[in-house]
């Protein structure tokens, strides 16, 4: 119990415990914000890259670059049942725990995938820049680079898997770990991490754009994507997410689950 002073009544142990539970969530929340920054890229840069490549997926049919986002939905359709019916039973067999893996392990796996996704995206962008250079298209941003849009499939499919691990994992974690009356606030907290990550991504892009383009150099985010270096940005995000994951690993070791086996 915290001792009260003067007119203040002492707080009940229950109240203190609830307050502590909230405080313990803050560092986890921060790391989850950092590792969600890559998630802000698919609607912007992924699409911009898609515009420049060969988008014929069937003879005579060009897919609109933004429609590739439907692949995320497809990936979720595959990932959720696979997670539920294959991955979890296997995990239960191995860990001998009814929950298979803990909520924090699940979020951590999502963070690793998120970092991996940025590595894949960076490699694909490097390949795209290379192809543009080979065909002398660097200064012709409107020309179609002879590289198939199928190259972009893995990074979209990975996004769906990250959703299943990280996003759903965070939702469950925050729902479960906040004090009972604050559960919808807990879910709002997990959703707001995504919102904040988008803001941070915008902030990062502004700063990098200013820093790399100020002395007449080519900014990483040059309007001509063939002169830009979005791949550097992806590598940077991969590093951020990896650092976020390491911090998360440390924090989750110190984390004490609240009411975990209350039966």
């Amino acid at each position: 119990m915290l001792p009260g002073e003067g007119g203040l009544e002492p707080c009940s142990s229950r109240d203190v415990e609830d307050a502590m539970a909230l405080v313990r969530l803050i560092p986890i929340w921060i790391t989850s914000v950092v590792s969600t920054i890559p998630y802000a890229q698919y609607a912007t840069f992924f699409t911009k890259q898609g515009v420049t490549v060969d988008r014929k997926i069937l003879p005579g049919f060009e897919i609109p670059p933004a429609s590739f986002q439907a692949l995320i939905g497809l990936s979720i359709f595959i990932s959720v049942p696979t997670y539920e019916r294959v991955f979890l039973p296997l995990a239960r067999l191995i860990t001998k725990k009814p929950s298979g893996i803990t909520m924090l392990q699940r979020i951590g796996a999502g963070m690793v995938l998120s970092s991996l996704n940025m590595v894949v995206a960076a490699l694909v962008e490097m390949k795209r820049l290379e192809t543009a250079k080979e065909h002398g298209l660097v200064d012709r941003p409107d020309a179609t680079i002879p590289m198939s849009i199928w190259w972009f499939v893995p990074q979209y499919l990975l996004l769906g898997m990250i959703d299943v691990f990280s996003l759903v994992g965070t939702q469950e974690f925050f729902y479960d770990q906040v004090p009972t009356e604050l559960r919808s606030i807990g879910l709002a907290l997990s959703l707001s991490a995504m919102g904040l990550a988008s803001f941070l991504s915008g902030f990062l892009i502004t700063v990098i754009n200013w820093a790399t383009g100020k002395n007449g150099g080519d900014s990483w985010f040059n309007t001509n994507l063939n002169r830009a270096h979005v791949d550097y940005f992806y590598w940077l995000l991969a590093a951020f997410t990896a650092i976020g994951f390491l911090a998360f690993l440390l924090l989750s070791r110190l984390y004490v689950y609240r009411r975990v086996d209350q039966v």
Partner: peptide, 16 residues
């Protein structure tokens, strides 16, 4: 309500 209850813990902690 939960906000008042938990908010008070931080308040008291701060005062102490």
């Amino acid at each position: 309500n939960a906000f008042a209850r938990i908010g008070r813990v931080f308040l008291v902690a701060f005062k102490n």
